[in-house]
């Protein structure tokens, strides 16, 4: 049974920042653009959480927009 394609994600390593995640997940993309993309795809972390942007080890961090 082949699984259908779903949205790709990574989980943060210990102490990893959004900049570090952006760099490893979106290599070659300008830093600020990569960070903005990660944020816009992960508002469950960057808007809904208290404090906003607090990364925890169990987080799902999407590295692409919704697939539609």
């Amino acid at each position: 049974m082949t699984l259908s394609k779903q949205r790709s994600f990574v989980t943060p390593g210990p102490g990893e920042t959004v900049e570090q995640i952006a760099a490893r997940a979106l290599p070659g993309r300008p830093t600020q653009k990569a960070v903005d993309d990660i944020k816009s795809w992960n508002l469950h972390i960057f808007a809904m959480r208290r404090p906003p942007g607090l990364l925890t080890g169990s987080d799902v961090v999407f590295v692409e927009p919704p697939l539609g």
Binding site: W41, M48, P65, P66
Partner: peptide
């Protein structure tokens, strides 16, 4: 619902304060 540059739409759920 947010529309992304690739044309797809995805939700974010906000509480009353936000």
């Amino acid at each position: 619902n947010l529309r992304y540059p690739n044309g797809t739409v995805g939700p974010v759920v906000l509480d009353a304060d936000i």
